[in-house]
């Protein structure tokens, strides 16, 4: 293993985070605080409790998931798209690095960054609402797995994207709607029965549900299914990344 190589990618990617700290860390915190203020006050005024949890607290796991998934995808996709765009990818491809090492470096850095953002949002949430975390270990595990799998997913998008528009397309058109409709701000049980069935086709439901279970012990689907779903998604992304590097798709001519 080229450990120094992995560490170098990781370090330089993290350095980019600190270099763009406003964009990287401060802005997600601000936008999340806005969600709290707007949703917490506007909707929380009408729905005081969801299954015995105050509405303000109820939306916290969903908000963290929203940021963690969005940030993971945008960090990882940009991290690998930029070298392609400015041409510095030649160096990565000509270095004695295996694709596993390249992925560990980039995805590791993107996941670290979104994990940090997720934890900062969690800390911010404590300022707004009283929170309990029933299963801290599973909370962290779900968060970490989400950051990892969505960073992998973002890495794939970054390789797939041919221009900046394509880079933004999936996060904006697919992920945001799925998270919003995936029970970030409501419980599936609040939906009419027909829509409850439709909601179960949204993969985000499993993510948000498992993560919320780690906080409050209540879930739309069982935490075991949530865990299986996210592990399955991670495995799928790994498979695609493996195929990309094996064939050199959109990386090597």
């Amino acid at each position: 293993m080229n450990w120094f190589g992995i560490l170098t990618i990781y370090r330089f990617e993290m350095a980019r985070t600190w270099r763009t700290i406003w964009q990287s860390i401060v802005s997600p915190v601000i936008s999340t605080s806005l969600y709290f203020v707007v949703f917490g006050t506007a909707i929380g005024g009408r729905i005081t409790e969801v299954e015995s949890v105050s509405y303000g607290a109820f939306i916290v796991p969903g908000l963290i998931m929203l940021s963690a998934t969005m940030q993971s995808v945008s960090n990882a996709s940009l991290a690998i798209y930029l070298p392609k765009f400015i041409g510095t990818i030649y160096e990565l491809l000509s270095a004695p690095l295996s694709y596993v090492e390249i992925v560990i470096g980039y995805v590791g850095a993107a996941a670290t960054k979104s994990l940090i953002i997720g934890l900062i949002i969690l800390a911010t949430a404590f300022l707004f609402v009283p929170l309990q975390i029933l299963h801290p270990f599973w909370m962290l595990a779900f968060l970490l797995l989400t950051c990892l799998s969505f960073s992998l997913f973002g890495f794939i998008i970054g390789i797939w994207a041919k221009d900046f528009e394509e880079l933004q397309l999936i996060p904006l058109l697919v992920i945001t709607p799925l998270v919003f409709l995936g029970g970030a701000f409501f419980s599936v049980s609040m939906l009419p029965p027909a829509w409850q069935t439709v909601a179960l086709f949204n993969p985000m439901i499993y993510l948000v549900s498992g993560f919320r279970w780690a906080f409050f012990g209540l879930a739309d689907v069982s935490p075991g299914i949530s865990l299986t779903a996210i592990l399955g998604f991670t495995g799928l992304c790994m498979g695609v990344v493996w195929w990309i590097f094996r064939t050199g798709w959109r990386l090597k001519t």
Binding site: N2, W3, F4, G5, L7, T8, I9, R11, F12, R19, L82, I86, G87, T88, Y90, E91, L92, S94, A95, P96, L97
Partner: peptide, 27 residues
Amino acid sequence: IVPQELSLDPFARVGNCLRLSRGLFGL
């Protein structure tokens, strides 16, 4: 390898550019 195009991260500092290259080669 020295490529034909001036492919460099515009915001990186010169010294760091070289450090990155060296690191990628595991040194």
